[in-house]
Design a protein around this nucleic acid. Structure first.
Lengths: 374, 374
DNA sequence: TTGTATGCGTTATCAT
DNA sequence: ATGATAACGCATACAA
């Protein structure tokens, strides 16, 4: 028996707000086309063609005509509910009220995300962590992300517990930019180790035998990775990779004096490598100290930066180093997320950085045999 | 009779992907709390308290406990489908990528949007117009917005037909930044007319009797409004508002020469007003011409800009003029949208601009009686 | 080749 | 004060 259609009070529904017309449903399309709603669904989703589902061309045409003339558009909420998917990818950035600091780093990333998402047939939805007022019913900010089929997370400020919650529910999630993730959380990151290694290899290739890394005194994974890559690079080239190859400075601006640089050079150091940080402090201090020491940069000493120069130094000659391929990172993140949605494993991926020859490195001033410090 | 519950193949569903745990539903919460699912819904939505619905405190506690221990979070898609609302506000910007970049002109606007949305208990979702790959099934880019309870549209590139479609379906929509909207489309805009009038009034108040508007030769509403405000301002102060009070230039950079400025000054013009455009061409040309004419700006001639100076001129002394209160615009747009969602009318709203005294206007060089040009 | 009957998770109405 | 139960719009296994 069909459900008791009319003649009965409609439960579950408030009366439609007066004056609010409803947009066409598949049911209306079906009625106009003289077919069933199920057929409409089949035709409109294209699943008949893709899977060789047998729908007559005539029926297809009728349905498509009807849908078009009614101006049918699918309801994404209903799609998601019924099919557990709506071809939407979420991007969650934990930037309080669209902050003014990190935005520079997110933008190029989003470019890659958008491109790859389009290529994979996904649309994007952006969430922010700032809105706290809303749907709050126990879900926190993260309940929104379930509107999408999966979600990308940007930035270090993602609340670990909420993220863990999503992972525990097996909601497809990919985190970008960190690597120390809880078990089961997929991530993509830049391969600082290999990139740093490459930089050292390039310096060694130019003839440098004593290379010094200047880094700040923190233990962020980004710093650690660079140092490891640096040391690996030294080892690769058979250069001394002792602890005196690395200079840790609590405050580069004060520690990195002209005298100290001159002393290093006197000891035989011919190339300096600085790590990249938010502020670019190490790099700035290094440049300043070399300048103050009266040393000619490509000529007397070579410099390299393990990353990209700060924006305000963009007009100076580019230092040797590497660039984080942010768009590529974004694209890779989307690929991984799509794979997760399709049931793939929660793996981590490293994306290679692009080596940048720059203009701050050249052969060491005079050919000389290495001075091992031991 | 209850539906034939189990013992029957589950239609309408693909088998759950292996290994994908499901997150808790209201049904589970209900089972754990020993109540019905409907009660769970009531308690969790707080509708029992709000509407004085009778739910015992004991039951409430049981339900809340169970929900919390299970980590229940509501499914926004299901909410939207069932209740036709999920406390989500969409923001659609017709730019290539998400406008999370501060340099982007949308950014200050979004700040206001976020604040007000939070204040109104809404969460935000950002859509972009660029992603074209996705859910395409007849809906175009705009089908996504129906995930939210309503949507804000930014920018002039909104496809009119799709917008019209949403309006025809009575989907709550507010457009920001234009005023020539199709019937039924709610909008908010800046009140250029009043703001321009105020600027003229300020100049007149300083003693200027001959004021000239320099505008570009287009007919954008933004330009038209400014000119009207300018002329109204002249009329208010009893100044001649003839056609020679406005100079339309096809190419300000070439037309606005030092000679011309000198000629105007010789005729008795003591203040120049430029309209603001994307490029700021009129303002730049005016400044340059005045400089070239060797005229001292606050001293010999006064200048004003009907808008904000371009970003690259931010370090120059601020010109007299007005600022578009973008955050306020955003907030107002959210208020209007919330009202629309609640069934309010599709009205248009003008937001007042903030007068900026600046440092480019002072009294005219020498007190003199007006020289009416007639 | 197409129609029928569920069901997704939630809200809201009615009967208890 | 609480429990059944019918939708919301769409997708899909299965019958016809």
């Amino acid at each position: 028996m069909a459900k008791e259609a009319a003649g009965r009070a409609r439960p579950g529904r408030a009366p439609a707000p007066a004056g609010r017309r409803a947009r066409p449903r598949q049911a209306e399309v079906a009625r106009l086309a003289g077919v069933s709603q199920a057929t409409v669904s089949l035709v409109l989703s294209g699943r008949d063609l893709a899977t060789g589902r047998p729908i007559s061309a005539e029926t297809r045409a009728k349905v498509l005509d009807a849908a078009h003339s009614l101006g049918y558009v699918p309801d994404p909420a209903a799609s998601r509910l019924a099919a557990a998917r709506n071809n939407l990818l979420g991007v969650f950035s934990f930037t309080a009220t669209f902050p003014t600091d990190v935005r520079h780093s997110y933008y190029p990333f989003l470019v890659g995300v958008e491109q790859e998402a389009a290529a994979q047939g996904y649309d994007l939805v952006l969430f922010t962590g700032s809105s706290t007022g809303g749907a709050g019913a126990g879900g926190g900010a993260l309940s929104r992300v379930r509107l999408a089929d999966g979600c990308l997370f940007l930035g270090r400020h993602a609340p670990a517990d909420e993220l863990r919650r999503l992972v525990a529910d097996d909601f497809p999630v990919v985190h970008v930019g960190r690597r120390d993730e809880p078990e089961g959380l997929a991530w993509v990151g830049a391969d600082y180790v290999s990139a740093s290694r490459e930089v050292v290899a390039a310096l060694a290739g130019l003839g440098h035998r004593r290379v010094l890394l200047v880094r700040e005194d923190d233990d962020a994974p980004a710093s650690t990775d660079r140092e490891r890559g640096f040391l690996d690079g030294l080892a690769d080239s058979g250069l001394p990779a002792g602890s005196d190859a690395v200079y840790r400075s609590g405050d580069p601006r004060h520690d990195l004096t002209a005298e100290r640089v001159r002393a290093w050079v006197a000891e035989g150091v011919t190339a300096f490598v600085a790590e990249e940080t938010d502020t670019g402090a190490a790099w700035r201090a290094l440049r300043a100290a070399v300048d103050a020491a009266g040393l000619d940069c490509p000529g007397e000493v070579s410099l390299a930066l393990l990353g990209s120069p700060p924006a305000d130094l963009a007009d100076e000659p580019a230092p040797m180093g590497f660039d984080i391929p942010r768009p590529a990172l974004g694209a890779e993140a989307v690929r991984l997320l799509a794979s997760r949605i399709a049931g793939g494993p929660a793996e981590g991926t490293l994306v290679a950085c692009a080596f940048r020859p720059g203009a701050t490195a050249g052969p060491p001033p005079s050919p000389r045999t290495p001075h091992p410090s031991s």
